[in-house]
Write a protein that binds this DNA or RNA. Structure first.
Lengths: 121, 121, 121, 121
DNA sequence: GTGGTCTAGACCACG
DNA sequence: GTGGTCTAGACCACG
């Protein structure tokens, strides 16, 4: 899986990494149990500080998306908790985006199509 | 309209203000042409600096949501541009949220219901 | 001559009035010696404070564009000084606009056409 | 590149900074990808507050002229959008200046020469 | 070290 | 009274 960093984005690099890995897991590009690159390998590959990659991995671990052990490095967790709900932060963000969609004249139907595309299958 | 600031949020105060006003306009709680509280009034009410409120208003102004004049303060714009599209930032955010929804086991159907609620009939 | 005020513009109202009268003189819509509306008439017509119109007239007078006397009110001056040069402020502004035109990819030729249109005849 | 602030000008300091950087980019004095001084360095150099410089940079960023990142500070953007048009504000300003040029007796030809000089060959 | 946020307080032009 | 500008100074996350 290829991680692309936009160094000029307002989104911090560690979050960009975290987000792309989460999206990779969600889309199936990263499968359950799959090995992630080591912190050193990934940081070398994308040319950023190891601390930054490490921070991303720590967050993914604390969120229950990956597991790390000293031997094998990091792997996608086999059974990710299915809370079947969004975090409050995500709900607030979604609410904000819905508001901005409405205000810009996007129809409910068009919005649905956008999400269909993002959802996949 | 009541603005509520979460001082522990990662979202900067000026953005919280901006977001809540945009959501107020979208929901109809703030109607076109309606007067917003003055910078001083709002900053006193929510207990934050006038500069911070002023920054929120300036962003809203630059985004075309409100208009300000020296005599009457700020008002919701009568005709907000209908671009009928989301900004790239909003698209990226939405994609991320969709990914996290899927990964947490939320069904496409449940997600749709969540958006229905946020959309308002 | 009709004066149109944009109450939400960043340009102060007194300057909008001043500018439109100058443009009226330049275009010939206001001819030399022509009587301007009284401060009271104009302020009533466009619905703003008499002080604001008065300020515009005072500036026009100090710039040598109009003459006022107690009997006849304000008139366009018969012989406006032909300095044959722009003020430093106008030069700076023009330089800034030229820079922004260039940077946005406008060709020298297109810019010339724009000015031709504005110049008239 | 040297930034000169006129503290007696009606143009706000943050706009003077913004304008001079835009003119620097347009003239080629600042080349694509070139590093700008840090907010702190520039504010120390010209003796004004960091907030004021920061505001100038944020405007330039929002206009697409520069990019900022936390590590390297600000740089001139590599590919600035070529809208090939002036903003309405710039058009209005240009129209006003053209009027004042005409009224002061400047010929169309002389005006053209002025712009030629500003344009740079 | 970098930009970003926020405050308390001041001053200003506009109207 | 209104928004806009500016300062001095502080603190923060990111990297």
């Amino acid at each position: 899986m290829i991680i692309k960093i936009n160094e000029y984005s307002d989104v911090p690099i560690y979050l960009q990494i975290r987000n792309q890995i989460v999206m990779g897991i969600s889309s199936g590009e990263l499968s359950a149990g799959e090995q992630l690159p080591t912190v050193r390998a990934l940081s070398a590959e994308i040319g950023i500080n190891t601390m930054t990659v490490s921070k991303a991995y720590q967050i993914l671990k604390s969120e229950g998306y990956i597991l790390t052990d000293r031997k094998n490095g990091a792997r996608v967790r086999m059974e990710i908790d299915q809370s079947r709900s969004l975090s409050n932060e995500n709900k607030d963000e979604l609410k904000r985006i819905v508001s901005e969609a409405r205000i810009s004249g996007i129809t409910r139907n068009d919005f649905d199509k956008m999400i269909d595309e993002m959802w996949g299958n």
